[in-house]
Amino acid sequence: MSGTPTPTPAPSLLEVRELCTWFGPDDAPVRAVDGVSFRLERGQTVALVGESGCGKSVTGLSIMQLVPAGGRIVGGEVRLGGKELIRLDRQEMTRIRGRRMAMVFQEPMTSLNPLMTVGEQIAEMLRRHLGLTRGQATGRSAELLAEVGFPRPRRLLGEYPHRLSGGMRQRVMIAMAQSCDPELLIADEPTTALDVTVQAQILELLRGLTARADTAILLITHDLAVVSETADHVVVMYAGLVVESAPTRVLFSRPLHPYTQGLLACVTSITQAKKRLRPIRGTVPAPNALPTGCRFAPRCPRAFARCPSAVPPLVEVEDGHQVRCYLHPGGTR
């Protein structure tokens, strides 16, 4: 940090600091999330990207305090509007979840109750968290469904989830997540199973939320093209660690980490004629057998002697652009 004292800024909407979430036995833990830090401001979209097993989904669940069985948060801080969430009791956390932060998942069918109508599910949220009456809740449910683009929302209230298409279910989930006007929406692969035209509708919807309601979105995805079109800032994860973090345009124009560069070389594009891709060799290391030093070194085309020595630090190389790589040792801090 610079030497001159600055007035304490207002806290970020979400601040994650050195978050560690481990699974399995204490003597041989699987370090799924191993010291992840980033922040998210109101109305901003930050993307957490990386391949399966990089820890992006566990990071999202840890923020919600919904770590799956077998896992535990062993260190770090998660602050929502300055308030530390990690040691809150269950009751307090339940109030925050749904009311101030909500989450949508890749497969909405698993998070919707198949035995309740769409209307009943949204109304339940509204009555529990906002104390609306049954009549008020029904009216508001219809409004919420209209906001996510259903032309005849009243008719939809009586439908069961299985009668809806994947895109419709995802819109219902977003309507539910929006029901209490949360400050933070965590979206884990919200468009991965959808057709491109439906994906475009959902992404448009998410963009609308940040613009209209000033909702902050944490977008968790492996799809770099979706990130490019939706996020303001990107955090790239590999094997439980943040390896690069930058404003979106900067990351895609000047990626610094060889892993980010490798991922971008693998991306196919409709504007690029038939071509040979340049895949990253090898596969992601198993979380219980991480290499020493830089975890990407065994697959890295630019690895050198220093890489296996110790995990490189995350250093800031320009404003808002951080990278964890010995090729860029001279950070400004």
Binding site: T197, Q199, S228, E229, F252, S253
Partner: peptide, 13 residues
């Protein structure tokens, strides 16, 4: 045209 316009793209500056 509609299909192609919906495809998300990685963009640089």
């Amino acid at each position: 045209q509609a299909l192609l316009s919906a495809v998300p793209m990685v963009r640089t500056d």
